[in-house]
Design a protein around this nucleic acid. Structure first.
Lengths: 221, 221
DNA sequence: CTGTATCCGTGTTGATACTG
DNA sequence: CAGTATCAACACGGATACAG
């Protein structure tokens, strides 16, 4: 009847009770950039099974992190969207990601979802290095489109059409990830990623994501 | 051979791979204020079983979050301590705790460990409200002693002797938690908590931990 | 006393198949 | 498309036994 919980008054323990179950946080991450349907979530989270997804969605709804909403006809499908408080959890992903980026056991080069890449750019971009750059960038990965504005030392990116951007990246998000985090050249990923528009801007943009130094591995004294 | 892992290049997913297992983060929390022995950890984490603790300690050592060290004779016992990178994880607990403090499903009044209370005070104290207050506070819970210095709008607390503090709290950490987070009076917890020294300072101190407003519960449109 | 290893009952997770 | 049903594998928690 009662699920397994830490019997602990610490707020951190309560956080783990509600988002510590396997897949709970990846589901939240996939919803941070906007609502999705059941099938969208399944597609974005390779490895999750339908019954676990159902169960987590129920739990996240019960804890007021997300709400389900039925779209008006004719699109009679259901969508899941974060509540206002659920959206405030983005800071959790930012600090988790920044901390884990220093992990000595992190293997590079694994595929990541579109949401992961967009959120990681939000988190990891070197804002002080932007200077007085002004630019608009477009990103199109499959059906998903995002638009980034760089201005006054800030970088904001959201779901939006890419039309009219100074440079547009289109294709596979893993291609762009390989360039900005793996140091690959655009030529090396040309089969997966197309770059349209201001090539000099693209070249500068991909230098804006420095990785923090790795911590020493286990046993390194 | 290989443990269950998200196959995901996202740094957040890697973070969950290494600290997402049940009890991993509570163990790290208990070590944030200093090294502990196996038995200390068991005592601070009611509900964990010895085999799970052993397994988590092995995993956290393999991922370079903690290291085990053997004390020099005659104290031949082993202690577990966080690595430098492991100590950097404190920010995770701060943002998790701050976010979860707004959870509409959090039940108040459950017991918390000494480390939890100390860390939560570090996180939740209202630094702007400190003004130009200068004070030294001592805390003694069982064998554990902490000393806090308030000066120049900052609050720092660490393991240290309590001698000479302006006010000393001694007894059960849950008594103090009930006062600063539950709004109880010192009289109401007099059987669990002793207050020695500057009573006016104690009265002011316990007002410095405002709780953020709760988010709306599930179903609240 | 301080851990570690092994067994076992139970609940959670994950893969596949299936239904409205 | 959006889940539910079934079942096997595994992780957890508790107890106990064992080793330095």
């Amino acid at each position: 009847m009662k699920k397994r919980a830490y019997q602990d008054g610490c707020a951190t323990a309560h956080a783990l009770d509600i988002v510590g179950d396997r897949w709970a946080m990846p589901i939240m991450r996939e919803l941070l950039l906007g609502p999705k349907r059941f099938t969208d979530l399944r597609a974005a989270l390779p490895g999750i099974s339908a019954n676990v997804l159902t169960q987590r969605l129920d739990e996240l709804e019960a804890t007021a992190i997300l709400a389900r909403r039925r779209l008006p006809p004719p699109a009679a499908s259901q969508i899941y969207e974060l509540t206002a408080w659920g959206r405030e959890s983005e800071i959790l992903f930012q600090v988790l990601g920044r901390w884990a980026a220093r992990s000595p056991t992190m293997a590079p080069g694994m595929p990541m979802s579109v949401s992961s890449l967009i959120l990681s750019m939000r988190t990891m971009i070197d804002r002080p290095a932007l200077g007085d750059l002004r630019a608009t960038l477009g990103f199109r990965f499959g059906e998903e489109m995002f638009r980034a504005e760089i201005a006054q030392g800030d970088f904001v990116i959201d779901r939006a059409p890419v039309d009219g951007a100074d440079v547009i990246f289109a294709g596979d998000q893993n291609g762009l990830a390989a360039v900005i985090y793996g140091g690959a050249s655009f030529e090396a990923v040309a089969d997966r990623l197309e770059v349209k528009g201001d090539r000099a801007l693209a070249d500068r943009f991909v230098t804006l994501f420095p990785l923090p130094p790795k911590a020493p591995p286990a046993g390194a004294r």
